[in-house]
Design a protein around this nucleic acid. Structure first.
Lengths: 307, 307
DNA sequence: AGAATTTACGCGGTCCGTAACCATG
DNA sequence: CATGGTTACGGACCGCGTAAATTCT
């Protein structure tokens, strides 16, 4: 058996069973990948992919099991290379961070600034995606670390550590009556047109569930994946905005009023996650420490800006 | 990087850094293994083994980390091959069981008989060793499964499931006064010369600790690794025997009297363990089920033979 | 007909084994 | 001086790429 055969199998799956695209990704020609598969199946004595003539449809049961092991095996060799680069005192490298917009835009900048001072030779790549996508990106080793609130705590192949908690605030154009109304209740929110996150992002599930528990259904006018877009629609008069507290910027958002909503909704926990199979390089570990230790303080700072 | 290089590294460690013996095990010549190491170190850009001239002494820190990953990686490819053999409906194969004497001699026979009926084409190898050795054998994939009482429950890389519990009994030549003495106490045992297991086997640690808690120190005349040897010395008059309950055979040991001691000592738990990294072949999984489900009943049956 | 996969074949690299060389106790 | 490890070199194997054949849309 050869590692290249395993790489071909894994890549084939990740290209939706297109041999040619897989070959392209691997810097090989079609026949090479084709042969890899044939060799693997020959050595194992069973088919790994379901075929219909020459068309590849999907994995067989055996193929799925092999895929899983192949991923683990390739992770092992990647780890070995990582150990080498670490040990050789190679201060350079790439830190691929998977994040949602909220993190990249509001939480990460000061932390990354500090990280860069410690590791100036490391290139930082921010891969923005939805939480579900981040999970598969971690599993496929497309990113090294991922930071997000949803979907990441449960997966058995990931190691997720809680880093900080946050809640929501309401934003509205200055002068809007709700900004001076004394107590803000769920019922009150339920009557208003709302602009907030779309499903899958920033605690939207808990958001809806909270209304649901009270037998209410919010009037959502626009849903977006990030707070910047939400703010824009709030400014355009589409309704009240409900965003993560930490996404409110007192300076840039001076034209928007803000009210805390943490008495209405559950706290959300943002986690830093990586694949259990992964050996983190020194600077990756350093970033993890940095984020785990200082993200909470950073967020409190932002929330302290409260006007 | 090549899998053969990793194999060479792992084998080198397991041969105490003898390149020639490693080469022999791998069916290669010395220079090949030597080159594998050189290639690996070249690719990683750091030394993996500490050298003194041409003599190899041990692993460097990096080498140790690489070794661990290499083991995992090779386990992955072994698993892939196992999946293949399974899927190809290959009913044959080898089941390598690591056991202590007690298991092989008293618990396993009827279970293995039943297993053989279901999988007649599977060769069963019983590798007898001490519990500590069994742990390393599992980690090195020298055995597929191990059954023992000690040392195996804690290791984080092993998955151990409790299967049955047992306690000790006392054996003595027929006619010995202790066989009719009403209550048997620790103090009474402490006065007598005893023959029992040696350290590391069959709950010897708990045995000593129980005496220690009462401020007693047993008079041990002979220590042995298995009950058969202990019985022999009891017959020879070296003292009272204390063995695992299930090791008493009413027929073969009719010349020895037996008294239960479960009121004096803690119950021991025997576990079936395998490496977490291992993908068990179908028949290996079947044996695990068999043992986990039926070992307890088997042991109760033996204990029911009580005369 | 065209896109995509498999088969056929030749070249180049590489990996192993033999042989010579070298350190160490 | 013998044991064990490294260096040097040649042959065999194998894996990739080019090109032709095949099959399904």
């Amino acid at each position: 058996m050869d590692l290249r055969q395993l790489r071909s199998l894994v890549t084939l799956v990740e290209t939706d069973f297109s041999v040619s695209r897989a070959a392209e990704r691997l810097n090989l020609v079609q026949p090479a990948v084709s042969q890899h598969l044939k060799q693997l199946e020959a050595e194992l004595g069973c088919h790994l992919v379901q075929r219909q003539g020459k068309r590849l449809l999907g994995l067989t049961k055996a193929g799925d099991a092999v895929l899983h092991q192949a991923r683990g095996t390739l992770a092992g060799v990647a780890n070995i290379l990582a150990i080498g680069r670490d040990q050789a005192e190679d201060r350079g490298g790439v830190l691929r961070l998977g994040t949602t917009h909220s993190q990249a835009r509001y939480v990460l900048p000061p932390l990354i600034r500090r990280f860069r001072q410690a590791f100036p030779a490391v290139e930082i790549q921010l891969h923005q995606a939805s939480p579900e996508q981040l999970v598969t990106m971690l599993l496929r080793d497309t990113v090294d670390l991922a930071i997000c609130t949803e979907a990441i705590a449960q997966h058995p192949e990931l190691l997720a550590t809680p880093c900080y908690r946050w809640n929501r605030c309401l934003i509205a154009p200055l002068g809007h009556p709700i900004l001076v109304q004394r107590p803000i209740s769920l019922e009150l929110l339920g009557e208003q047109p709302l602009v907030t996150y779309v499903a899958g992002f920033s605690g939207h599930g808990h958001f809806l569930a909270t209304f649901g528990r009270e037998g209410l259904k919010p009037r959502l006018t626009v849903g977006a994946a990030d707070a910047d877009v939400i703010k824009t629609y709030v400014r355009e008069g589409f309704g009240l905005g409900i965003i993560a507290d930490l996404a409110y910027d007192p300076h840039a958002d001076a034209d928007l009023g803000r009210r805390d909503l943490s008495h209405l909704f559950p706290w959300e926990v943002t986690r830093l996650a990586l694949s259990r199979a992964k050996y983190p390089r020194a600077f990756q570990g350093a970033f993890m420490d940095l984020f785990q230790n200082e993200a909470a303080a950073e967020v409190r700072l932002r929330q302290g800006h409260e006007g």
